[in-house]
Measured scan of single mutants.
Amino acid sequence: MGSVRTNRYSIVSSEEDGMKLATMAVANGFGNGKSKVHTRQQCRSRFVKKDGHCNVQFINVGEKGQRYLADIFTTCVDIRWRWMLVIFCLAFVLSWLFFGCVFWLIALLHGDLDTDYKDDDDKSKVSKACVSEVNSFTAAFLFSIETQTTIGYGFRCVTDECPIAVFMVVFQSIVGCIIDAFIIGAVMAKMAKPKKRNETLVFSHNAVIAMRDGKLCLMWRVGNLRKSHLVEAHVRAQLLKSRITSEGEYIPLDQIDINVGFDSGIDRIFLVSPITIVHEIDEDSPLYDLSKQDIDNADFEIVVILEGMVEATAMTTQCRSSYLANEILWGHRYEPVLFEEKHYYKVDYSRFHKTYEVPNTPLCSARDLAEKKYILSNANSFCYENEVALTSKEEEEDSENGVPESTSTDSPPGIDLHNQASVPLEPRPLRRESEIGSRR
């Protein structure tokens, strides 16, 4: 089982795998120059863009038009607004034209077009017409509009002379109601789609790998820009990579689940303020055997998904993003964004995407760390350097704002901070800030 798991979770494809794949392509008759073999020097295209759209195009789909027309309502909801407006206008105009032609044909076959009612006051002739005051196609078209929109100006009306005319008036009224219901329903469904809710759900630009509770963890940050909550919010993550099976089958995008606390339930989050999602790199993680150097040379993509129900409509929305291997910062942490004021908490989104480097973060893999092949620094050293990194950030910001350097908390000259780390230190809580992250 261990060997199978290692093969499945191998992220960085070796040169031997690339040569094996190329040999397979030639042997199977696919070596026509169009096949692409992804190596370390040639990274694959992003499968999920940063804005959440999937970078996929469908080609050679059989009976595409028929399949889309069979699900016309979903098609109308998914198309762009400009095409929705075109369909909206065409549906009414074509129905008016169709029934206008029908009423014109009825008048033509009944002989109503030969009668001039402007110079004739004989009401008996008017009563013999199928539709009064309809003696041309324009008049028939206007009567069709008046019937379907129930305008009723009063000059044109159907008589009991022709039952077919009466039937067409009733039929057009029913068709008009159906068109109204369909168009209004599609427009309302399109307006109520929770897709735009994703514009106020954000992911951090970069993911980070750092120590948390004595273990290497992959972390990324999510935030909600609205005050309205995302009900039943939960997160998922998958690692996408290519691999070759033991039988020699090439899988271009193998999807591997990344555990973010599904078993323990901590994948469900209360997204009021930005939260750091934590994936513990343990023996079940696809990143277990990867060191910093392996991450730098790897070719994979981590897709992160945030799902929840919109509070206003109770409709489920899904926000997506992805991180390539070069977008994962090893040995970094996110800057705090949640600050405790006197009577409330304040979230500073200008710090949302910012990170700071944490010294002495192990550069080895989580496996080597678990097997004690890498000796961690003293816990006080880690905490102290973590505090120094934050303090230096604040000093830089104070210097930019014009604060005198004498007010900063610099260490005395001639003292090495790293050498001082081995000395037991008193706890130094942050002056006014605390970061709330997901705790395992």
Rank of each mutant, 00 (worst) to 15 (best):
K393A: 14
E161D: 01
S291R: 11
V202W: 06
I59M: 10
V272M: 15
M84F: 12
G402W: 10
G31A: 12
N32G: 07
I295T: 06
C177Y: 15
R156M: 02
I151Y: 05
V48H: 03
H418T: 13
V48K: 01
V403S: 12
F339S: 08
A325T: 09
I295E: 00
E335K: 03
H229K: 11
T317P: 04
I11F: 12
G111I: 00
S406L: 12
V37P: 12
E340K: 04
N378A: 08
G248L: 04
E307V: 06
A325Q: 06
A192P: 04
I415G: 14
I79G: 06
L69A: 12
P362V: 02
R197Y: 13
S291I: 00
P424M: 14
K196D: 14
R243P: 12
E357L: 07
S228A: 13
V4R: 08
L85I: 13
S273A: 08
T75Q: 08
I72D: 13
K372P: 12
R431L: 14
T245R: 13
R236A: 09
T355S: 04
S124A: 08
E247S: 12
S321L: 02
L290G: 00
H279Q: 01
T147E: 02
T317E: 13
S285I: 00
S392G: 13
E385A: 07
D78W: 09
V126Y: 05
E385M: 06
S14P: 13
V86Y: 03
G261T: 13
I179V: 11
F92T: 11
L287Y: 01
H38L: 11
F262H: 05
I183W: 12
S422M: 10
G65F: 15
K373G: 14
T147P: 01
K34N: 14
E280G: 04
K49R: 08
I295P: 00
F58V: 10
K393F: 11
P412G: 12
S392D: 13
A366C: 01
G176W: 03
G261F: 12
T6N: 11
V158R: 03
E385W: 02
P286E: 01
E301V: 00
Y374C: 14
F73S: 15
M84A: 07
V388Q: 14
E63T: 12
F99I: 00
E426P: 07
G29Q: 10
V134S: 02
D368L: 11
W96F: 04
R44S: 14
D112G: 01
I269W: 05
V222L: 10
S377E: 14
D282P: 00
S422G: 05
G402T: 10
K342P: 11
Y384N: 14
C89V: 13
S365P: 01
D296G: 05
H353N: 08
E15H: 07
F262I: 14
T115Q: 09
D114Q: 14
L271T: 08
Y288D: 00
Q238F: 14
A312W: 08
H229G: 06
M188Y: 05
P413G: 11
T276V: 13
E15N: 08
H234E: 13
D267K: 06
R351K: 10
E249Q: 07
E400H: 10
V337H: 01
D213N: 14
K346L: 04
G261A: 06
N380D: 10
G31V: 06
Q238C: 08
E426S: 14
E435P: 06
T313N: 07
S35H: 09
H279P: 00
L430A: 11
S365G: 02
G18M: 06
T313Q: 11
R80E: 05
E249A: 12
P252G: 15
K64E: 04
S381E: 10
E371L: 06
D284S: 13
I244C: 11
N419T: 10
I266F: 11
F47K: 06
S291E: 03
S124R: 04
E397R: 10
C177T: 07
P412F: 10
F99E: 00
E387P: 02
R320H: 11
V102W: 10
R431A: 12
F137A: 07
L230F: 04
A389C: 10
K64A: 13
F137N: 02
Q66G: 07
S264T: 13
N55L: 04
I266N: 10
S411N: 12
Y250K: 15
P412H: 10
R351V: 14
N7E: 15
C383M: 14
V86S: 15
V231A: 13
Y288P: 00
T138H: 03
A186S: 09
E385Y: 03
K128S: 10
M188P: 07
R367K: 15
S132V: 03
P163A: 14
N224G: 08
A379K: 04
I436H: 12
A181I: 15
E394L: 06
I106G: 01
F171N: 02
C130N: 03
D112K: 03
F203A: 03
A22R: 13
N360R: 07
T74M: 05
T407Y: 10
S411G: 13
W96G: 07
G33P: 13
V303K: 01
V93K: 04
S377L: 08
S14C: 11
K118Q: 02
K190R: 08
T149M: 05
S406W: 09
I106Q: 06
F300E: 01
Q318G: 06
Q41E: 13
W330Y: 00
V56K: 03
I244F: 12
F300L: 03
L425M: 07
R431G: 10
S350K: 15
E16K: 04
L376D: 15
H110S: 03
P362L: 02
I59L: 14
T409P: 10
E395D: 10
A237F: 01
T39I: 09
P163S: 06
K195V: 11
K50W: 00
H110N: 04
S322Q: 00
V278P: 00
A389L: 14
I145L: 04
